[in-house]
């Protein structure tokens, strides 16, 4: 049953795409890599949460959501990025939105633990080499 529903969902997505609901425009379309479906905003690939609309209003109006998706940092780390954008990239004063945006970024895009000097190879897609 689950499989049927999945297929139905996928078919509906393909159908919607064929209706032209997304019309990629050169140099302005939002291309995203979603790595899970536990609540990702289809427009940006960002985690869906109550702060998301604010994050989209403050952040992804100017730059790719991938700038957020590929980075992980503590609250202080994200604040440092905001300050840098304010210093050099004409980002406005976020005012009351700042703690909301920081709550979101540090909660969903907080630091992850890694091996210190070199990580094991990961995401290997094994294939048979015949040559």
């Amino acid at each position: 049953m689950k499989k049927i529903m999945l297929v139905a969902a996928l078919l509906s997505m393909v159908y919607l795409a064929s209706l032209g609901k997304i019309t990629p425009h050169p140099y302005s379309q939002k291309a995203i890599h979603a790595d899970s479906t536990k609540g990702l905003d289809p427009e940006t690939g960002l985690v869906i949460a109550k702060e998301l609309d604010m994050v989209k209003a403050q952040c992804t109006g100017c730059h790719s959501s991938k700038m957020i998706l590929q980075f992980r940092a503590s609250r202080e780390g994200w604040l440092e990025r905001i300050r840098w954008m304010q210093r050099t990239q004409k980002l406005w004063d976020l005012g009351e939105a700042e703690p909301v945006v920081l709550d979101y970024l540090s909660k969903y895009y907080g630091p992850v633990k890694h091996a210190q000097r070199r990580q094991p190879l990961s995401n290997i897609q094994w294939y048979k080499l015949n040559k």
Partner: peptide, 10 residues
Amino acid sequence: YSPVILNSLD
């Protein structure tokens, strides 16, 4: 699983 459409954007 990455939804088809999101990947097709890339």
